[in-house]
Design a protein around this nucleic acid. Sequence first.
DNA 1: ACGGAATAGTTGACACGTCATCCAAGTTCG
DNA 2: CGAACTTGGATGACGTGTCAACTATTCCGT
Lengths: 138, 138
Amino acid sequence: MNTVLGAALSRQMQTESMLSMQDFEVLVHLTDIDDARLRVSELAKAMRWEKSRLSHHLSRMEKRGLIGREECSSDGRGAFIVLTPEGRAAIEAAAPSHVDAVRRHFFAVLTDDDVKALNSIADRVIARVEATDTCPSE
Amino acid sequence: MNTVLGAALSRQMQTESMLSMQDFEVLVHLTDIDDARLRVSELAKAMRWEKSRLSHHLSRMEKRGLIGREECSSDGRGAFIVLTPEGRAAIEAAAPSHVDAVRRHFFAVLTDDDVKALNSIADRVIARVEATDTCPSE
DNA sequence: ACGGAATAGTTGACACGTCATCCAAGTTCG
DNA sequence: CGAACTTGGATGACGTGTCAACTATTCCGT
């Protein structure tokens, strides 16, 4: 399901909006906050991405003009990621049809109980994985 | 859930068995059949992979000695993929702990009803995506 | 204040996925 | 038979993900 659904959604976004799902995720996280300006590590944590992956991806997005980098005066190491006008335009163009695709491909065939069940399952699995993955006895 | 679970499982397999999830999938499909000899397109269809992706991956696996290619006499274009002894050894070494990881990370937190619900959901979503994706009005 | 650790982020090498393209072997039909 | 078309599969270019190594800054203990 995962494979098939993901492929369908990313194909749709790619052909209609020239954005990958990953681009979209980054842009979503940037628009979610008020001043559209975020430290790289904050972003990485919010997205559950490795810093390296994010850094690579940001370079590519910067090259395409979707985001920009700004120096951080309070911490000389850091960098702010900012959403450019082009980036904002891109996500605003992409979002509606993406939402629609998710509705059509996914929620259209689910009942409310299905959604509740999925939520509960996902919560438990994530908790389980993150528990055994980070801390313990293993 | 998908992201987190997939990452955990592939990390586990990589560190314990030097195989990626994709390697594993290929090997599973090859051991599933009796004479461990399959046409590339059959394999691609069974795995729901693009032919190109499979071809690239098989090249990498061949370089590592996990599989081999054999000419097909009945169809001069074709190639058979065969499982090498190394490949068989690799999957037999990897399988038990992978199964165990899936059980621990996933099934351990699911009830029977959860599993039934998930199965039903996945069936519906896949049917839906494949219906709207291949044939119709769009 | 100074030297070692931690932190922020980048980079390079390499594995992987997709797309478009290509080629050779088969198929169809005049 | 032979030209157009299809099919099996490989390849190259390019975008993406991971790991390990690296640089530069900041933090912290003495």
